[in-house]
């Protein structure tokens, strides 16, 4: 089941430019949320801070399970994941890329194979598992990134502009995958997008980020 994420008074500046100015919101466990906003409104920064790969200047992001706040640390980091708009591709096979998170978690080999095959099938890359990942197209790379995130069954899945860098066909495929995983994964899903259609179709709640603050529409 997805974790609840309570964000309070998040502030972040880069070189004197305020990006987030006291952003607060509570994302309920298992919900699907879309964050919209103009370029430079801080959507990516917000997701990076929530996914704990960057530290805020002030404020906090608490992950809550059954009313208890989970302490920040590696155990929590392994229950959340963020798919970036540009997927960092490890120079190895597609299979090894998807299996990476499972290997970190010391999952046994048979289980890794089973889960990688399932994830690859879900994103339509089952026949490309032995290919070098760096030879994939941008749409396939994005789908591989999605499989890499899905395979670890995260409790919270952050998707930063998941359809921004792909063509219409891949965009539709990725949207279908997102629709599919909201039922199978039962994770809390928070995605940022410029695509109002995607936000409406995929999310239960749409937020806008403006002037460094989040507001529900």
């Amino acid at each position: 089941m997805g974790l609840t994420l309570s964000v309070s008074e998040l502030k972040k500046s880069y070189g004197g430019t305020v990006v987030l100015d006291g952003c607060s919101y509570r994302f309920e466990g298992g919900g699907v949320y879309a964050i919209m906003g103009p370029n430079g409104s801080g959507k990516s920064t917000f997701l990076r801070l929530c996914a704990l790969i960057e530290k805020p200047d002030s404020g906090k992001a608490d992950f809550i399970e059954e009313g208890v706040v989970i302490e920040h640390g590696l155990a929590l980091m392994r229950r959340i994941t963020l798919l970036l708009p540009s997927v960092g591709v490890f120079n190895t096979t597609v299979y090894e890329n998807i299996a990476y998170g499972l290997k970190l978690r010391k999952v046994n080999k048979a289980e890794i194979e089973h889960r990688v095959l399932n994830a690859a099938e879900m994103v339509g890359l089952k026949d490309k598992l032995r290919r070098r990942a760096v030879t994939l197209s941008s749409g396939e790379t994005q789908r591989m990134g999605l499989a890499r995130a899905l395979v670890i069954s995260p409790s919270v899945l952050f998707l930063d502009e998941p359809t921004a860098a792909v063509d219409a066909k891949n965009s539709k495929a990725i949207e279908e995958i997102i629709q599919n995983i909201r039922h199978t994964l039962k994770a809390t899903i928070i995605l940022s997008t410029h695509d109002a259609g995607l936000a409406e179709r995929a999310a239960d709640t749409i937020l806008t980020l403006r002037d460094g603050r989040a507001t529900a529409l």
């Binding site: 994941t81 798919l83 970036l84 970190l104 995130a149």
Partner: peptide, 19 residues
Amino acid sequence: LIRQAAMTLGAAPFQTTMA
């Protein structure tokens, strides 16, 4: 991006370095 990818997939600092 490689560092970020490793971190977002749950790599500890040493595992990130190794990646």
